[in-house]
Every structure is written in C-alpha cells, then in structure tokens.
Design a protein around this nucleic acid. Sequence first.
DNA 1: TTGGTAAATTACCGTAGGGTAAGATCCATG
DNA 2: CATGGATCTTACCCTACGGTAATTTACCAA
Lengths: 232, 232
Amino acid sequence: MAMPPSRRAGTSRAGTSRAGTKGVPRADREQQILAAATEEFGLRGYDATSLAAVAARVGVTKTLLHQYFGPKQDLYLACLNAVGDRLLAAIRTAMADGGATGPHTPLRVLHSLFTALEGQREAWFVLYDTSLPPDSEPARRAAHYRAAIDTLAETGSLDVLRRSGPAHSPDADHLGADPLDRDLLAYAWRGLATTLVRWWIRHPDESVDAMTRRCARLFTTARTALAPDPDA
Amino acid sequence: MAMPPSRRAGTSRAGTSRAGTKGVPRADREQQILAAATEEFGLRGYDATSLAAVAARVGVTKTLLHQYFGPKQDLYLACLNAVGDRLLAAIRTAMADGGATGPHTPLRVLHSLFTALEGQREAWFVLYDTSLPPDSEPARRAAHYRAAIDTLAETGSLDVLRRSGPAHSPDADHLGADPLDRDLLAYAWRGLATTLVRWWIRHPDESVDAMTRRCARLFTTARTALAPDPDA
DNA sequence: TTGGTAAATTACCGTAGGGTAAGATCCATG
DNA sequence: CATGGATCTTACCCTACGGTAATTTACCAA
C-alpha cells in the first residue's frame, strides 16, 4: 500500500492543465475525487460514507480531500451541484426537444437520463439522500434539485395527459381533477424513473439503448396489465 | 427533563404483564422502543440513526436500549424482523385472498400494505436501508425480506399479465418473453409501491381508504397516459 | 544551488456515538 | 426491615471519523 508518490503525471493530461509539476494535476484529481465521492454518496448515503473510504478509492489521503474541497458537507455539495445540474440539463433538453420528433416524451426523458447517468449510475441517488443533516445547506440544496425535477415531472405528466386524455371516458372522476391526484401522478412518474435507475444499477451490462428499449417494452406491457377492473 | 421515575404504570397494561413493580413494564417499553427505533431507522437510515435519538424519543436512556435489545445491530434486527414479518404476511394474505373477490390484485395488495403500515408508514423503508454495514447480518436479513417480497411481486406480475395479456397484440415482442423483462416488471411494480408509500408519508392526513382510491384513479390515468407511440 | 510552488503525506486533535459496569430507585413479600 | 427482583440512570471507556497543522517530495526556473 501507500506506494511512493509515482513520478508519471497520470493518464489524463487534460488540455487546460498548466503542465505538471509533479503528481496528478489538481484539476484531474478533483475530478477523480468527485467521481469517487459521488459513487460512495450515491451508494451508501451521506452519513454512512466515510471520507477515508473515498480517499482510499482514489488512492490518496483523507487530508487531500479536505485541502481540495473543504469539510465533508462541501464535498457533498460539490457532488450534488455537479450531478444536479447535469441531470436537470439532460431532462430539460429532452423535454424541450421538439414535442413531436422521435418517441414520445417519457421515453425521450428516460433515454436522456440514462445517457447522463452512464458511467456513474448511482449519481441519481445523491439527490435523494435521506441521511443528510436536517436544516443543513446540503439538505436544502438537495431539496431544491428535487423540487426542480418534480416541476418538470409535473408539466410532463400534464403534457402526456393532455395529449392522450380527451379521447377517453367522459366521467371527470379521474384525469387530475384533484390537484393531489396530479401531484401523485408526477411523483409516481419520478419514482418510476428512480426505480428504473436502481434496476439498471443492478444490471451493469445493460447499455443505455438496450435499457431504453426495455423500458419501452415495459410501458407497453404495463398498459395491458393495467386493464380496468374485470369484475365489480 | 429526566422527570423523576413516574409512578403510574403507563397506559397500556398489557395482558401478559406480570403486574408492575415500578415504572413501565418491560413488554410495554420494548414496544415503545421498537416503534421509535423503527421510525428513526426508516426515516434517516441505519447509520444516521443515533441510539441517543431513539432513546430521547421514548424518554429513556441509551443504556436501556442496550439492556433490552443489545447492540445497535440487534435493535435494528428486531425492528426489521417485526416489520418484515408483518408486511410479508399482509401481502401474502392479500394475494392469496380469493383471486376473484373485490378489486383486482394490485389494488388489494396496496390496500393491505397501507393497512399494515398505518400508524408507522416509514417502516417500509427499514427494508430498503442502503447504509447497512455490508456483509453484516442485518444486510443479509434485509435482503432476505426484499427477496421474499420480490418473489411475491413476480408471481403477482405474471398473474396480472396472464389475465389481461392474451387478448392483445400477437407479436411476442413484449409480454415478458425475456426473463429480464419480467424481472424489470416485478421490480418496477415493487418500486411503485415504494413510491406510493413515500408519497403517503408526505401526506399524513390521507386515510388508508382514501389513499387506495387515489391509487385506483392513478392506475386508470396511467393506462390512458401510456397510450402507444402516436408517431413513428 | 537555491528558491518557489504544486502535490501529497504524517502526525495529531476533538468529539460524537456505540457499548459496559456499577449503582440507584421502587415495589413486593416473608 | 431486610431480601429480592424489576426498572432505569449515572458515570465511564473506546473507537471511528471529521478536521487541522506541519512537513515532505518533486519539479521547474533563475
């Protein structure tokens, strides 16, 4: 262990790196650390993640994390912001991306989500950490991202409903007459995405496209399975 | 705080309680502790839950938890077993309960699940804690319960498919030709239940029956929303 | 060589939190 | 009133982990 500080400047040689003085350029290390921390946070949750574990994964010492990112909360915030912005952007563009081109919106969103998560699938769960210290900035910021995604999910739900709804049964019993019903629909849709990502994590060999196709089949299957009450 | 050991023997007076010597009879205390611990574990996760917090909630000291339940892992196991058995039983009876009576199976299962969780809705998440120490007995036991539920979900999925499937499109492209497709379907169904419980937690005033009806509406809505690709 | 600077480590501190040992406190009963 | 058995606490230990200061290692440039 603790191999002597290797001489070579590492594998990356990022373009903007101001040439190497010694070890791995700071920008590269920061990326490595962010990646490792994101995985750990997403996998075990904030509280159960130890900085030593993250550091070991990168092959450095706990101290370096502090020097680059400050205290644990700040490291988490760095992960959270990176992940949150990336995912929000992915979803936004997928939803805004011409309502008529290609497959219908839900699948487009899923595909975009999977693409944004490829290579770091646990990242999604950084947003849904339940072990964040209550009333802390991390908790607030995570809630912010969740709310943003929820908003998107809600407009998306309404959109889909509006497009396929009117041609159906006339009773106003369903179709989001109750605002809580609409809230639940959006919530369930977002929860479904979460579930799909979790399944994807457990099947690492599944490619983005294969996963998307599988989801398409799932939708088809689910529609037939949700046939109305055969009795009563 | 730390009010002097109250004289009265508490509210419950359980039948098997061998009369009170002083404070709250042990059986009662154990129930209180289990309830509090279950809530905390479900809410914050295993690692982020502190025994002091659980103890404070009950109004006793950390030490008492240890005397009654042993180390933290054992307390968690006690919660897990209680919750797991209760939920498994609820789901099993709901599924076995005459396939033809009342609403179709998924709703019956949900209703039964909500009933079993009423008064302690966070309990569900005790089974899905991601912060359990890997390769520990808690992790194994939780995995065991999850697997049992997954099995039920899978047979349930197949059941629903078999009942509503054959009357549909002839291509074998969907309908679980691929075993992974079936796995995903069961997984998604279980994930949906999780999502619904989470939403329920965030709307504490919703009664079991109201929640079940809301889910029924959700199913209807979802079916129309899942209309096949309008283009391509 | 010497100095400067970036990269990283060793050594250390403080505390939160799991866990234990040894009493308290109260009631019942002979 | 002493003995005994429940219930519950005070006081304490120890380790894991977050966090900091001081120091080392390597390269480059004058």
